[in-house]
């Protein structure tokens, strides 16, 4: 072995974990609003637990969706259908969650059902929508963008057709309890924790990253790529269904226009949180931080009484900036390699 030449090891520069960078961004955004708050409103932005609770509540639903969308993006795909699936599930779930005290219930025979029924129906519909997405992508080979775009339009259509555009209201008390108080926050956090661990410590997670990093290599390593993709999209659908249940429950009503653009907020949260659109990289923890950054900005602008139009403009710019930053990171890395 003496004459065997030693290859030099290319040492990567020690860098902080990506999550820490995002956490710093979160802190920076919070501080900016804090300073602006004292300057223009004469009061603290952060030292207001009510405001913070409302902020997290506002983004919980998007956060639940974002957990699913993050997994889809890690496989190298995209899910545009989640916002519409929220509306579709909200409508159908609410129609089997109505109270008999309401005289014009949609299905008078199906009122006052135990809460498990609307819950199962809602989750089932979300799951089904996700499975259809996944099956189309895995077995017909059409791009995820197209498959989920189709689902986005179709699910929104079903939501409208279901009651010919009428809202559905008057849920049972037990159904309304699902989204009351701070419950959505806990649901969001529970979902985030579950999938954070699933991605890091289970075979499901390992395969998800592998497929996103290199689908051919994943196949040669013995992974059934198609079946796994169906699973990932089904989970994303399931979580969109859960988000639909929470939304309907909290509002105590369901409308076909619910969840509009949520898919884009969810994608934005994932991307801001460091999930790479080229696949193979991303963490649920990052997505949670990304969701909080979005919420902080919405809440902060409202606090500063900035016009809602400006909020959207700034949000758009931030999303693009996050992807540009990611692209530069990738380029820098491939040059080094």
């Amino acid at each position: 072995m003496e004459n065997v030449q030693i290859e030099p090891v290319k040492r990567s520069r020690r860098s902080l974990p990506q999550e820490l960078n995002i956490l710093l961004v979160l802190v920076a955004v919070a501080l900016v609003f804090e300073i602006l708050g004292w300057l223009f409103q004469g009061q603290s932005f952060l030292m207001n637990s009510r405001r913070l609770t409302i902020m997290i509540l506002q983004v919980s639903v998007v956060g639940i969706i974002a957990v699913g969308v993050t997994q889809v993006i890690i496989t190298g795909g995209i899910d545009l259908s989640s916002g519409s699936v929220v509306a579709m599930t909200a409508m159908i779930t609410m129609s089997v969650a109505q109270s008999s005290e309401f005289a014009r219930a949609m299905y008078p025979a199906l009122t006052d059902l135990p809460v498990i029924v609307p819950l199962a129906v809602g989750l089932g519909i979300g799951l089904l929508a996700g499975m259809i997405n996944g099956a189309l992508i895995a077995w017909t080979g059409i791009p995820p963008f197209i498959a989920t775009l189709g689902m986005m339009v179709t699910a929104r259509g079903i939501a409208k057709w279901y009651t010919k555009g009428q809202p559905i209201s008057f849920p049972t008390d037990s159904f309304a309890a699902i989204g009351s108080g701070a419950a959505p926050v806990f649901i969001f956090l529970a979902v985030a924790v579950i999938f954070h661990f699933a991605l890091r410590y289970t075979r499901y997670g390992k395969f998800t990253y592998a497929i996103g990093a290199n689908p051919q290599a994943a196949r040669v390593s013995g992974i059934n790529v198609q079946r796994h993709l169906v699973k990932v999209y089904a989970i994303a659908g399931l979580l969109a269904g859960l988000a639909g249940i929470v939304t309907a429950s909290r509002a105590a009503t369901a409308q076909a226009g619910m969840g509009m653009m949520y898919e884009l907020d969810a994608i934005a949260a994932a991307v801001i949180g460091g999930t790479s659109l080229s696949g193979g990289r991303g963490r649920i923890f990052g997505t949670v931080i990304g969701t909080l950054i979005l919420g902080l900005m919405m809440s902060g602008f409202t606090f500063l009484r900035v016009d809602a139009f400006y909020q959207e403009i700034v949000k758009g710019i931030i999303i693009v900036a996050a992807v540009v930053a990611d692209t530069f990171r990738q380029k820098a890395r491939s040059k080094k390699a």
């Binding site: 390992k206 990253y209 592998a210 990093a213 290199n214 290599a217 994943a218 790479s276 193979g280 990289r281």
Partner: peptide
């Protein structure tokens, strides 16, 4: 068809 470039040595080895 071999490496998962964005992943670690450990993840590449155990898959």
């Amino acid at each position: 068809t071999g490496c998962f470039l964005p992943l670690t040595v450990l993840e590449n080895m155990q898959i």
